[in-house]
């Protein structure tokens, strides 16, 4: 699958409280409602700026902090196509795959706010169209590819009546 959109640039250590604040996440299971507050503490206008299919691009340790799955879900429901970061916090990374939000571990140091990107998830390749550069991403573990291909962990369990992770 090839995704194309604009980069919204953030820094290092973007924690899950910034992605979706605790003051909202406890109230509802309506992820559309939560999505309106995504990244609000870092950029109050973020939700309105995003066009469907855009990317969040960040530095090191994206998604650190709490285990709230509302964080990847709020991003997904804000119509962000994928998150690209130099590294991810581990619970967020698992949660993203489990809920079907593509996450790409890639050197983001030369991607600027507003750059037009093309992301090939299956090949693990990012093309920065604005700068005419190609960057290779770190591949997903095969266990996670299985879960993503099944449409997330809930579908994986439903389809296989349990875990089916062996090659």
């Amino acid at each position: 699958m090839i995704l194309r959109g604009r980069a919204h640039r953030f820094g290092d250590d973007v924690n899950t409280d910034y992605i979706i604040s605790g003051k909202y996440k406890f109230k509802t299971l309506d992820m559309k409602e939560l999505a309106m507050h995504v990244m609000e503490d870092l950029d109050p206008d973020f939700y309105n700026k995003v066009r469907p299919g855009d990317f969040i691009v960040a530095g090191r340790n994206f998604g650190c902090g709490s285990s709230r799955e509302q964080a990847p879900l709020a991003i997904k429901y804000a119509d962000i196509a994928a998150v690209l970061a130099s590294s991810f916090a581990r619970i967020f990374y698992r949660n993203a795959i489990n809920t079907g939000l593509p996450v790409v571990e890639v050197d983001t140091s030369r991607i600027e706010d507003g750059d037009e990107l093309e992301v090939d998830l299956s090949k693990g390749k990012v093309v920065n169209i604005t700068r005419d550069e190609e960057i290779t991403a770190k591949p997903l573990p095969s266990v996670m590819i299985k879960i993503l291909n099944d449409g997330g962990l809930a579908n994986h369990i439903k389809k296989n009546k349990g875990f089916a992770l062996e090659d």
């Binding site: 799955e69 619970i91 809930a154 349990g162 875990f163």
Partner: peptide, 13 residues
């Protein structure tokens, strides 16, 4: 720590 879907998978299996 895990997320909610991992928790559900553990509860189920």
């Amino acid at each position: 720590g895990v997320g909610s879907t991992d928790l559900a998978a553990a509860m189920a299996t």
